[in-house]
Design a protein around this nucleic acid. Structure first.
Ligand SMILES: [Mn+2]
Ligand SMILES: [Mn+2]
Ligand SMILES: [Zn+2]
Ligand SMILES: [Zn+2]
Lengths: 138, 138
DNA sequence: TCCACTAATAGTAATTATTCCTATTAATGG
DNA sequence: CCATTAATAGGAATAATTACTATTAGTGGA
């Protein structure tokens, strides 16, 4: 039974532009924001193409998907393991160095009913800017 | 300037039923699943009421919102800090004891641009059941 | 116990985010 | 340069959530 090999991904200008857009910012943009960025240079790329390529690039490991409570999927060009702080007021994201000790990861691997392929450690709160300008609530 | 106090939440049978539904399962149900559960005893509760009360109960700290990559909001009656393993194939969730050392949390608190109110540590992979029954890919 | 007030609900419409569909375009290997 | 077919543009469809509004039902006082 001949394995039908997966079609090799063609390299399109759209795909390259989507990747470059995410790499060009440190804001962890969502699909809509990537769409806006790419359209500056490629005014009639379609939104569906942006979505398709974001997923594809994430599958290939060139981008990382991140998502915070109640927010939509966002994309991160920093694929090395690291953690995030998410401000619940302005929805901005800060990168944090990896702080989860290897020992913790190993211990969880033992306890868990499955194999751990990845993890997300997300911190939530108010950023210093929003702490000044608001009276605590959202 | 007189503070107009927030209206005190009335206790409705719907709200109690929503809370009980989430407490009755360990599956971390989403709104639709809670809706199905509640309708067994309260056949014409509306979906909007379920959504509204889930949010409200989360605000009150009686429920905790959780969300995994690419999935919708789910609810957890276990409000004490703990962590999760999420199977990317069957989308089931396992509770894990808290494994993030206090020292790590403190260190992050110093590094971070804001104050940490909560965090989520989510592990992703294939559960043992799905590892047996599938040929690796989703 | 009754009532007035108004928060909460049921039912439905609207919105948002994402995926699906399909005719057309363009990357690629020969 | 072609033939093949993956990928795209544009728009329709779907899924999840929120908004709207007439009606219902908690609640605190009389
Ligand atoms: Mn990041
Ligand atoms: Mn849990
Ligand atoms: Zn902020
Ligand atoms: Zn599984």
């Amino acid at each position: 039974m001949a394995q039908d090999r997966p079609p090799s991904n063609r390299s399109t200008t759209q795909r390259a532009a989507v990747l470059r857009a995410v790499e060009s910012v440190h804001t962890h943009p969502n699909a809509e924001e990537v769409y806006r960025l790419v359209r500056k240079n490629m005014p009639n790329i379609s939104l569906a193409t942006v979505y398709r390529n974001l997923h594809l690039l994430a599958d290939e490991g060139k981008l990382r998907e991140v998502q915070f409570l109640g927010d939509v999927l966002r994309y991160d060009a920093m694929t090395d393991p690291h953690e995030h702080f998410y401000c619940r007021a302005c929805h901005r994201v800060w990168d944090l160095d990896s702080s989860l000790p290897e020992t913790v990861l190993r211990a969880t691997e033992r306890k868990t009913h499955g194999s751990i392929e990845r993890y997300a450690l997300d911190y939530y709160g108010l950023c210093s800017h929003c702490r000044k300008s608001t009276t605590s609530r959202d």
